[in-house]
Amino acid sequence: MTAVNGSKLIWQLIRISIGFCAAVLTAGLFLAWGYFRAGDPSMDPVGFAAMTGSGLVTASVLGGLAGAPVFCAILAAELLSVRSVIFHAGGAGLIAFGLWSLGASAEYGLRPGTTVVLAAGFMAGLVYWIIAGRSSGCWRQTPGPVA
């Protein structure tokens, strides 16, 4: 039988929220950087501002699109106490690839930009793991042996 530590659960929910926000921001900014390739802000401030602005907008869109599958993966990780970086980074990459492949035709192969999307997913999963994934399931307590 497993007991629940309420204070650890609250802190884990806070880490999950912050981790999700940081992960989608990472993915959005990584995608914008990967597609815009704006240079140094002192050399091209308009391009850098456009890249940053579009990255923030992309992050909000990604949060809405990836929310359901991401929270299913988070729920699975929390209930099963999966703390593996491979699970979190690989799962985020798989979700990113799945969203990128929606509506794509199989007859032409992979869409251009697939590697950038996969890298953004992996980076998002790594950021989430650093913030919340390393402590997945920490709120679950197994009672010690009865003396």
Rank of each mutant, 00 (worst) to 15 (best):
W33G: 04
G28N: 08
L31G: 06
I10Y: 10
I14V: 15
G47T: 07
R15D: 10
S7T: 13
G47V: 12
A59V: 06
K8W: 12
I10H: 11
K8Y: 12
S60V: 12
R15S: 05
D40F: 10
L9I: 00
P41S: 03
F36P: 00
L9Y: 09
T52S: 12
A32K: 05
M43R: 13
K8T: 07
C21R: 01
F20Y: 15
A22Q: 06
G6N: 12
P45H: 05
V24W: 04
A50H: 02
A59D: 04
L56E: 00
I16E: 13
F30S: 13
A59K: 04
V24D: 02
Q12T: 10
L9R: 15
S42P: 00
L56H: 01
L31Q: 07
I14L: 12
G39K: 10
L9S: 11
K8S: 10
G55P: 06
D40T: 10
G47I: 13
A49G: 08
W11M: 10
S60Q: 08
G6F: 06
A32T: 04
S17M: 01
A59W: 06
G28R: 03
V61C: 02
S7R: 14
V57A: 12
V46L: 14
S54A: 13
Q12Y: 01
A32G: 07
G34T: 02
G47K: 09
L9P: 02
L56A: 12
V46K: 03
T52G: 02
T52M: 15
S17D: 01
I16G: 02
G55K: 09
S17Q: 03
W11D: 09
L13H: 04
I14P: 03
T52V: 15
A27K: 00
G19T: 07
G39Q: 07
P45I: 15
L56M: 14
T52Q: 06
L56I: 14
G39D: 11
M51Q: 15
M43G: 09
I16K: 05
S7M: 11
K8H: 13
V46Y: 05
V46N: 00
G39F: 07
F36W: 14
D40S: 12
I18H: 01
K8E: 15
S54E: 07
L29S: 03
L31M: 13
P45M: 14
G47L: 10
F20E: 03
F36R: 07
A50W: 07
F30C: 07
L56F: 15
F20H: 10
I10G: 04
G53Y: 10
A50V: 10
A27Q: 04
T26V: 09
F48E: 00
L29D: 01
R15Q: 08
L56N: 01
K8Q: 14
I14W: 00
D44M: 12
A22K: 04
R15Y: 02
F30H: 12
G55F: 13
A38S: 14
S7F: 08
F20L: 04
Q12L: 06
Y35H: 10
Q12S: 07
A49C: 05
